[in-house]
Computed example of a mutant assay.
Amino acid sequence: MKLRIYIFILCILESAFVLPLQAQMLTNKGQLIHITANTIVSVDGSAVNEGTFTNNGALSVSGDWDNRSDYNPGTGTFILNGNTQQAVRHNNQNFYKLQIAGMGEKILESHVTVTQELQLTNGLVTPDQQSVFLIKEKAVINGGSNQSYINGRLFQEGTGNKFFPIGKNGRYKPVLLDQIEGVSPVAGFELFEPNLQAQPGGDLQEVSQIRYWQQTMLSGILNKAFITLSFDQTENFANIDSLVVAEANGPGGVFRSLGMSKTTGSLVEGTITSKLPISGNFFSIGVARNEVTSNLLFIPNAFSPLAALEEDRVVKIYGKNISQENLLFRIYNRWGNQVYESTSLEELSSKGWNGTNMNTGATESSGVYTYTLQGKFNTGKSFKKVGTISLIK
């Protein structure tokens, strides 16, 4: 049965009904339909709007949605709950609240913008290549799982922290952009599988061949952001401590390390957050080379303030990929008294210690001094080092 809703239905939908109004199909031919708060209209089939549709309640559609005219989202919820594939042609207009339910895939065949909330309960959302699925800056996203995610590209507007509940091939692999800074950025992410052409750069031992994420800027400028990616046992990594976020400028390009600031979970299923802000457009999980950790840290074991070469007159820290975070270098004399301390990577790598007691300003005497050094590499790996330095005069 096809139900055509004309202007006289308006009085029914504007009354305070809380019981669902059901129809097998809804066709609005140039009329005004207004769903008020506490009213639910449930369409067990497809719906076509060729008039004006205002939704301050809830509209649930199990078939295709074809908006050819004006949809006023009001403060209403639009529910796509079909158990078979649903086509959504929304005429480049907004949804206030959009809920994804039912087992069927939702194919977005036109631009869709969500201004308040996206609720992922069940079912996939697949935007076609010509359509933009955009979440406005103040909107929130709830849900996301292997049963309900964005099977394609999702855009988000604004700065701060943005969550992208995307996936591919039945695997939910969301992305989090953290501490976004920029000028009105609108960034999008999509997951791809596999990643067979990826090449590890000099600071990487390998890059995941299973998947990669691509970022696309729709508009604005993204100046800074840190990224969190998901991984699982399909990537067959051996050691979670060696994992880093890897980025490249193009598909199949040479990936470089963004380090690792933290991980969650385990190699079976977990997440990893970059140590450095992103600068490329393609991202994957990488394994750091061993040299990126302990082998790239060196402290001389002797120096002399009277040496002919300036470099030999001080004690510096030499190395690559050393982070400023949690860095602490201390030197003690033979009686255990601290004579030097620094937490500055710039000072330790450029000036160093020249043998002067930080407390008295006097030059220390010849002898053997003990040092302690702790900190992190840019990969996120912590280090601690204890040794001795001979001051020679």
Rank of each mutant, 00 (worst) to 15 (best):
F237T: 10
A238L: 12
A238C: 13
A238V: 13
N239R: 04
N239P: 13
N239I: 09
I240K: 04
D241G: 02
S242G: 11
L243Y: 04
L243K: 06
V244R: 06
E247G: 12
A248T: 11
G250D: 14
G250W: 01
G250C: 13
G250Q: 12
G250I: 12
P251Q: 06
P251G: 05
G252D: 05
G253S: 05
V254T: 10
R256L: 05
R256I: 13
S257C: 03
S257L: 04
L258Y: 08
L258F: 01
G259V: 00
G259A: 01
G259I: 00
G259K: 06
M260K: 05
S261N: 05
K262P: 09
K262I: 04
K262Y: 12
K262Q: 11
K262F: 06
T263V: 12
G265H: 00
G265W: 03
G265Q: 00
S266R: 06
S266T: 11
E269C: 09
E269R: 01
T271N: 10
T271L: 11
T273Y: 03
T273G: 00
S274T: 04
K275N: 10
P277L: 05
I278E: 03
G280T: 02
N281R: 11
N281G: 00
F283N: 02
I285K: 07
G286H: 05
G286I: 04
V287P: 04
A288E: 15
R289W: 07
R289Y: 05
R289V: 15
N290L: 14
E291L: 13
E291N: 07
E291Q: 13
V292G: 01
V292T: 13
V292Y: 00
T293S: 12
T293I: 14
T293G: 08
T293F: 13
N295W: 10
N295F: 08
L296F: 14
L296K: 14
F298D: 12
F298Y: 15
F298S: 04
F298A: 14
I299C: 09
P300F: 07
P300L: 09
N301G: 13
